[in-house]
Amino acid sequence: MNDTHGHTEGDRILVGLGGLMTELAPDGGLTARWGGEEFVLYLHGHDMDAAHTFAEHLRAAVQDATLGRVNVTVTVGVAEWPTRDALHHAFLHADDAMYEAKAAGRNRVIRSSATATLHPAQA
């Protein structure tokens, strides 16, 4: 975004996206920027189906929103965080799902499968 449209426009879009995510997040949801152009949203008490439904709602809302001077879409990876697993595994599963969604054409939501394979260096 910054390389194409400049830092001012990129910052405007990132602030707008963060605000929209915070506005749409259900009670107990936690939104944070996760470096670069990535965000993370923690939905406490939501199962995978509810999280996927919310992510699809968010994706559509971003597509329809005016966040800057350019059209913006999001690509979302959804993962669960079983309490028996380290938190970083949930991030890795969500990241893998996001890259799968990007490879499938972007502007979509993909949920991590229960059998998602972590890259050996990430496990």
Rank of each mutant, 00 (worst) to 15 (best):
L30G: 10
A65K: 04
A86R: 12
E37D: 14
D11N: 09
A104Q: 13
A101P: 03
A25K: 06
H44L: 14
V40S: 12
W81F: 07
L17W: 07
G35H: 00
L17S: 03
E9V: 05
L14Y: 10
H52V: 13
M21R: 05
K102M: 07
A61E: 06
A90C: 01
R59Y: 03
L87G: 00
A32E: 10
E9G: 02
D11C: 09
D11V: 05
Y42M: 15
G105V: 06
T115F: 05
G29Q: 07
L92Y: 12
E80Y: 02
R33T: 08
T22E: 14
W81D: 07
E56T: 12
G36Y: 14
A65Q: 05
H89G: 00
A101L: 01
W81H: 15
G18T: 03
D47M: 05
P82W: 05
D96N: 14
M48E: 15
M98T: 11
I13V: 11
L17D: 00
A51G: 03
R59P: 04
A55P: 10
T53H: 13
T115Y: 07
L87F: 09
I13L: 07
L87M: 04
H93A: 15
D3S: 02
A94D: 00
L41G: 00
G77F: 01
A101Q: 02
A90P: 04
A65T: 09
